[in-house]
Every structure is written in C-alpha cells, then in structure tokens.
Design a protein around this nucleic acid. Structure first.
Lengths: 217, 217
DNA sequence: ATTATCTATAGATCTATAGATAATGC
DNA sequence: ATTATCTATAGATCTATAGATAATGC
C-alpha cells in the first residue's frame, strides 16, 4: 500500500481520466453552443469540432445530441443550484432566501458569465428543468405564500415572471455591460418581491441586505 | 363598368388568389409548427406536408425556412398589435394602456388559442421582434416612468419580466385550463403593475377596470 | 399562352458505424 | 492485451432545382 494507485480496485487510472476529459470537452462544447442560442441546431460534427475531438468519439460517450444537451444542462443547473443552496443555508425567512437566490443568479453576469450565457441561451425552457433556480424559487414562493407574506396566487406564473426578469437582466448585461451594476440586481430583486406581493418598503429593505459570501465553485 | 372585375388593370384574379392561398397555407403551417415549439427544427418537407402543398411549391413563395418563419411571425405579431391598438385607443393613462394591453394578451388563451400557442412556442425571442406587445409595452412603460408613475429603472428588464409572466400564464392555461380564469389574468396585470412600481392599491384598481370591447380580428 | 403547382432527382449534409491507429494497463 | 480515439464511409435525410402537369387568362 505504499503506492497510492497500486491497488487494482482503486480510483480512476490514466485511461479513465483521459476518457473523462473527452467527455467533459463534449459537455463544455455543448454548454457553449447552448449559450450561443443554437443548442439544438448544431450538428454532431460541429460539436466535436468545437470540443476538438474526433467525430467518432462522440458515440463513445453519448447516444445522441439530445442526450448530450440533457447531460450538459443538468451539469450547469446542478452547479448553479448548489451555489444557491450554500449561500442561503441558514436563512429562515423564505422571502429572504428567494431574494438572495435571485440576486446571486443575476450576479452570474459577471461572476460566471459562461453560466449566464447558458441561461440566456436556454431561455424559459429552464422552468421545466429539475435544477437551478426554478425548483428552489417554487419552494420559497410557496413557503412565502403559506406564511402570508406573498399574495400572488399562481406560483408558476410568478416564477415565470421572475425568470423573465432574470433573463432580461442577464441579456441586458451581455449587450450593454455598462448599464448593469450591483444596484440593478438589487432593483430587480426588489421589483420581483413587490410582484409577489411583499409591501414595497419591506421589498426595498430585503433586496438590499448584505449578501452571504460565496466561495468559488 | 357594369362588371366589377372586367377591367384588366383591376384587382387580383383567380390565379392571384390561388397563389395567395398556397402562400397562406405555408404561413399557417409555420405558425402551427412554431406553436408546437419546433419552429426551427422542422424540415421544408414537413412544412409543405403540414400545409398540404407540393414540396417544390415552397420555393415559389420563400427562399428559405428562415424567411418563411420571419414572415409568419410578422403576420401574427401584426394582428396581435392591431388588436391591442384598437382596444387601447383613447386611453390616456400609460399605466392603464399597459394594463389593458397585457390583460388582452393574456386572454388570448381562450379568445385566440392559436395565437397564444404561437407566443408560448416563440418564448422570450418575441422581445426582439418589432411587433405585438413588446414595442407597445416599452412605449407605455417609458411614458409611465416619465410621468413618475413607475419606479423601475430598466425598461428592458421590466418588459422581460412582464413577458415571462404572460408566457407563464398562457402556458399554465394550456396545461391546466381549469386553473386559469379571468381573475387570474387580472391578478397577473396587478402583479406586473406592482413590479413596475405602482402603489399596490392603484395597481389593484387599475387591473380590475372593465375592458374595452374588442371586435374579432 | 401563361403561370403556378407538383413530381422526381442531383448534390450536399448529417448520422451512425466499422476498422485502423494510438494510448495505457499489467 | 485492452481500451479509447480517430479516420473513412455507407446510408439516410435534406435542400434546391429541373422538367412535367394542371389551372387559369385572354
């Protein structure tokens, strides 16, 4: 047991790592293509060229384009969701959890521009995906309704409006970076809290609370 | 001048009308395909089959799929916009014009379900299109800002949130018709007015005003 | 006679796979 | 020896067009 990788039952070897790199190159290329808004339209040839791997290698990892895009989306949504969870851990008020989640998501514009572009590229389809902001916001909005803080009845409609606002801000930053700053993010959160039915004064206060520090991801 | 169509310089003849019918069949098929969410993915073959015309006839009318979809979108957006304009003609308050426009658009779910499905199929891409609700809402939101009624600064972000809310309601009605009624539409408008910064009481009143009668279109 | 539509097809592109090549395991 | 990657290609699909057929004009 002196050599770490001596045992045959032990972790990934060089071959496994090479395979994982190829797979990851495909996923990263897919994320870039979704970000460019041509997720479904790209051919497998384009994908493998963007990933800089041989054409045939595609089928070692995925059975179809759809499966690759599905995997790529899940991966980004998973990271996004974990970031939200870490930052909102320990916050009790659902309205504040919602506000923090949304503000962090809007700040992706500059903290993780490639994730932001993925979100704008995917659009409202993200509402159906089981990851990222959507399921967490549904949970928070419903908790806020149960607690009597939010008055808007249709959770799904509210969520869709919030997603529209988020995507709008991310797109604005992509087109005109100089027109978006931290206060724009807070203003979006404030407006969304008002939309949900929170009193304007409380919305204003909540949307300006200091944000928890977020480690890199 | 006893026979209406006698003069050779006069209006469309039978041939022109046949040509127009074929063109319209293509446009209608394109609208249906966009509504099904596979606007860009459909092949020309699928389009001509859906339109029930010969494959080659496509090229008598359009040079490419993109041109057809562009034309089809413009046509629907044009009708949608005219409906809004007719209904809001004579209303002075920009917040009320906005509210009426949005409520009529959300009612498309049952007044013109094929238009509603087109909107949900197209998604937030509609924000870039020069027709329909988007340019009119931009105008109203900016007028409301200038008049000091609306406090939200970024018009484009606000518009995107409103579009998200509208699409959310249309989608909800498509999936669960029993969960959407006229009051749901009014509630969406109320929430959007609050989002824009209107005081909650005024938002509530405005979103419940009687709607102008709209003739068919 | 003129014009639009339809059918058939050439050429381009795309997917999926087979077989050759390169990298790693043992 | 084993496993993954790469190159080459068969077969399917798609686009664009040519030429035949059908409808209308005059």
């Amino acid at each position: 047991m002196t050599s770490v990788a001596a045992s045959t039952t032990e972790g990934p070897n060089r071959l496994d790592r090479r395979k994982a790199r190829t797979r990851q190159a495909l996923i990263d290329a897919a994320v870039r293509l979704i970000a460019e808004g041509r997720g479904e339209r790209a051919s497998i040839q384009e994908i493998t060229e963007a990933a800089d791997i041989g054409f045939g290698s595609f089928y070692n990892h995925f059975e179809s384009k759809e499966q690759l895009f599905e995997t790529a989306s899940s991966e980004v949504l998973e990271r996004w969701g974990r970031m939200i969870d870490r930052a909102s851990a320990g916050i009790a008020d659902p309205a504040e959890v919602f506000s923090v989640s949304l503000r962090l998501s809007a700040r992706l514009s500059w903290t993780h521009p490639e994730v932001a572009r993925f979100i704008t590229g995917a659009g409202l389809d993200l509402l159906d995906a089981p990851g990222g902001l959507a399921p967490r916001a549904v949970r928070d909005i419903q908790a806020g309704q149960a607690a009597g803080q939010f008055s808007m009845a249709d959770t799904e409609v509210a969520l869709s409006a919030v997603a529209g606002g988020l995507i709008g801000l991310l797109r604005l930053h992509q087109r005109h970076p100089e027109r978006v700053e931290e206060s724009s993010v807070d203003e979006l959160a404030e407006a969304c809290l008002r939309l949900l039915g929170l009193p304007a004064t409380k919305a204003r206060r909540l949307a300006r609370l200091p944000l928890p520090a977020t480690e890199d991801w």
